[in-house]
Design a protein around this nucleic acid. Sequence first.
DNA 1: TTGTAAGCGTTATCAG
DNA 2: CTGATAACGCTTACAA
Lengths: 337, 337
Amino acid sequence: MSTIKDIAREAGVSISTVSRVLSGHRNVSEATLKKVQEVIERNHFSLNRSASNLKRSSAGNIVLVVVKGLGNIFFASLIEHVQDEIRAKGLSVVIQYIDEDDDEVAAGERLALETKPLGVLFLGGNEAAFCSTSLLGNRYPTVVLTNAVDVGRPGICSVTSDDVGGARQAVSLLLSKGHTRIGVVGGDPTTSTTSALRLHGVREAFSAAGVPFDEERCYVGTRYSLDDGYQATTQLLKADPDLTAVYAFSDVMAIGVMRSLADAGRSVPADVSVVGHDGLEIARYTTPRLTTVKQSQAELAHLGVEKLLALLKGMEISKNKVLAVQIEEGESVANRK
Amino acid sequence: MSTIKDIAREAGVSISTVSRVLSGHRNVSEATLKKVQEVIERNHFSLNRSASNLKRSSAGNIVLVVVKGLGNIFFASLIEHVQDEIRAKGLSVVIQYIDEDDDEVAAGERLALETKPLGVLFLGGNEAAFCSTSLLGNRYPTVVLTNAVDVGRPGICSVTSDDVGGARQAVSLLLSKGHTRIGVVGGDPTTSTTSALRLHGVREAFSAAGVPFDEERCYVGTRYSLDDGYQATTQLLKADPDLTAVYAFSDVMAIGVMRSLADAGRSVPADVSVVGHDGLEIARYTTPRLTTVKQSQAELAHLGVEKLLALLKGMEISKNKVLAVQIEEGESVANRK
DNA sequence: TTGTAAGCGTTATCAG
DNA sequence: CTGATAACGCTTACAA
């Protein structure tokens, strides 16, 4: 493959001149600029990033660490939003997917060391993991999306949706419709802060209404998948056949919940009301349309990137920004009969 | 950050020894190995990939170019499958998402030049685009998934599902249930080979059954999204209010189709039968469950990576492998009343 | 088994 | 405005 050297030779200039042309420097005469560009064009020349990055302090990109598995569809579209935002700022993105049970921080650190990015963005990732790193948030500005992180380091912050409030609203809505026997399909609060916060919101709503919540019987902590939503509902129905409502911590789960209810001969919302969480596009296309706690992916992505950029400029910013969520009314909730 | 030099100094050995340890060479005594590893560990040292790749001929990874926008959910889970397959072979993945209307080949070439991968894998991408490249399939073995590519170069091949057969089966199923007024929601056959092939299968099924297909009226070529599936159905219903079945080229579209039918007061499958395409997991959770043409993502991913590896070893392999598809029966198809 | 040294393709500093 | 030239951190013959 041709190198900058070949281009220089062919254009009859020095390699520094070619480098200047490539980096868009101004100190090049119109004539040489044209000539060099022509040769570059003709040879389909492209910079060797490895060599370039070896010299530069940063590769000028953003590392995006995606904790996969968690809520698949939600993250998939959040990734697109984040990418669009980053590209809109003229930066490029290096994506690293890691498994749910891998060490996200270690993965982020390793990639940071290897690619020398401007900053690192996490989609998911729990607070505890970030305590031990000295690189992330120190050498590399870091923003965590969807999970609150506050480890007392200035270069690391997060943007989340209001998980407590969202869950509270969801359950309050059901309570206001007269439901009291409400099943909740969530995650494991000991390993997922998001799940812990939403569970907290659930408890708040119940106690604010003075309605008891038998967590043992009515809460199932599982994975955020279609099948787990399905299975959890089967389990809830067995524990309390008189259930009249279910709140699921994700729309994906909620779709599994609705299917499970249908298979159990319950009609939604006539027999059982369902509320989801996330506000996925597909929630507006299910039958019945899903009532859900909508978190704005666009806003999450936008603010996340904005915060990262602010961090890059060395600006002082708040540790954790919590975005408001809002119930998106569908057709899956009705008054208790 | 510490470099290989620092490690060498601290361990009291030369940098080549450290390099040997890092690359798992055998020519290192047990004692020095231990010592060096200990120092590496203690300093949290990690190789600078840029420098490493600058020397090596290849970075030992696979570039994955994802043409995004197209069928979102389908690709999202296909990506995970592909990643898992590649990692299982001990290779790493560099993902590049590109917009539907960007030049996928140019993007792949640029990334190839920059990262010197072992090979390139495309998720989507049309045949025509691959004709002009001299790099892909020549210098870099290339495999295209979901789209057939046969450009007469030995290093480039593809794995697809049987699009023609799948579409034929879908329409034949509907015809066999007595439906004749069938609407088809697909893509633009002039820009998407997948859509063209499926449309071809549709035509075959109709003509094999001796049933006329008024393409002008009953085919809508649009984008593979929920909303486009919805809108297309509205349009089809206007063109022929007596429609009794719809075949959509993707499950995502089909979900939009079902929602549109429900909003038009048609019940699925009592009034209108629906068949989707892809076999997404979520198709088994809709109400009613979607009957769909299932293509195996796992198989697609597995064979794709296997072919790429074979290409890397310089093996001669068939240009295009077509995987069988199969109707997955749901509850969205019924006999015509 | 270990060390020395010559690059890999670029960028950046300096003179010219 | 342009051209030498010294790094950047690593790999890899080749020597020892």
